[in-house]
C-alpha cells in the first residue's frame, strides 16, 4: 500500500537546521524519503546535522545569515540548479527570550521581528519562485509557538512575532492556493532543545517543574514537531492549508 505520509521524491528546504527543531526536522524528513537542503548559521553544526542524515551525499548544506537576502537568493538559485524544483519549506529558524515590557527597546523589537518574521517571509517569497508546479504542489510551514496563541509573563515580544506568523500564514494560504502552494503554521509547546534549555525557566528545578506541570503530556521532543512537519509536507495533507497545527502536549487544552 502506498504511504500517504512518505516524502519520497520531494525536496525540502529547512531553516534553522543547525540545531533543535530544525535539525530534527531535517533528519526526520530525510528518513521519510526527502532530499533536504539545510540552511543555518553555523557550518560546523550544519555538518553535524548532515552526518546524522541517511545518505549525506544526496543533501545540500548552506551556512548563511537568513537576513542577508541577496546571498540567500543566490544560494537558493544554486541549490535549485542542482536539485530541481522544491516541494517544501520549513521555516524553523528563530530566537526566543523572556523580557518584561520595560526592557523592550525599539532595537530589540526590530531584531526579533527581523529574525523571526521578516526572514521567513522573504525566504518564502524566494521559495515560491522555485516551487514545484506539479499536481501535488508545494507546502510551506512556519514554526510558530503556543506563545502565538496564549500568553505568559515576559513573553510579549516572542508572542508578537509568533502570532504574526499565524496571522500571516492564513492570508498567504489564500494568496498561494491558486498556485497549489499550501501554507500552515505549527505551534509547539515547550520542546526540549538548546533554545528552551537556555531559557530563564530552565535554569532551576522549581521553574522547570512549573513549566512541565503546564504540559499534561510532559515536555515535547524535537521529533514530535518534526513528525507534524512531515504530515504537513506530505501528500496526506494535500487538502490542509491556512491552519495552525497545535503540538503542545495539552498546554492549551485548559
Amino acid at each position: 500500500m502506498e504511504n500517504p505520509f512518505s516524502l519520497d521524491g520531494k525536496t525540502i528546504l529547512v531553516t534553522g537546521a543547525s540545531s533543535g527543531i530544525g535539525r530534527q526536522t531535517a533528519i526526520s524528513c530525510s528518513r521519510a524519503g526527502a532530499r533536504v537542503v539545510l540552511l543555518g548559521r553555523d557550518e560546523t553544526r550544519l555538518q553535524q546535522t548532515l552526518a546524522a542524515i541517511n545518505s549525506p551525499d544526496l543533501h545540500l548544506v548552506y551556512a548563511v545569515d537568513l537576513l542577508d537576502y541577496d546571498v540567500v537568493g543566490k544560494m537558493l538559485k544554486e541549490a535549485v540548479s542542482q536539485v530541481g524544483s522544491l516541494h517544501g519549506l520549513v521555516n524553523a529558524a528563530g530566537i526566543s527570550t523572556t523580557l518584561p515590557l520595560k526592557l523592550l527597546s525599539p532595537e530589540k523589537m526590530d531584531h526579533f521581528f527581523r529574525t523571526n518574521v521578516h526572514s521567513a517571509i522573504q525566504l518564502t517569497k524566494l521559495f515560491i519562485k522555485h516551487a514545484a508546479q506539479n499536481n501535488d504542489g508545494a507546502s510551506v510551514i512556519f514554526l510558530s509557538s503556543v506563545m502565538g496563541m496564549v500568553g505568559e509573563m515576559g513573553k510579549t515580544i516572542y508572542s508578537l512575532t509568533k502570532g504574526a506568523l499565524i496571522a500571516g500564514a492564513r492570508s498567504l494560504a489564500l494568496e498561494l492556493a491558486t498556485r497549489n502552494v499550501r501554507v500552515n503554521t505549527i505551534s509547539p509547546g515547550v520542546v526540549v532543545t538548546p533554545m528552551s534549555q537556555s531559557a530563564v525557566y530552565s535554569q532551576d528545578e522549581e521553574s522547570l517543574n512549573r513549566v512541565k506541570s503546564l504540559h499534561p503530556l510532559g515536555l515535547g521532543k524535537p521529533e514530535d514537531v518534526a513528525n507534524a512537519c512531515i504530515f504537513l509536507l506530505s501528500d496526506a495533507a494535500r487538502w490542509v492549508t491556512g491552519t495552525n497545527l497545535v503540538v503542545d502536549g495539552g498546554y492549551t487544552a485548559r
Binding site: 527570550t97 520595560k102 526592557l103 515576559g154 537556555s198 530563564v200 535554569q203 532551576d204 522549581e206
Partner: peptide, 19 residues
Amino acid sequence: YLSLISFVDEEYGIVIPRD
C-alpha cells in the same frame, strides 16, 4: 523578579539560577 533576572541576563549575559 522577572525584570531583574532578564535585565542581568541582557546586560551582563549572566542567568542567575533561582536557587
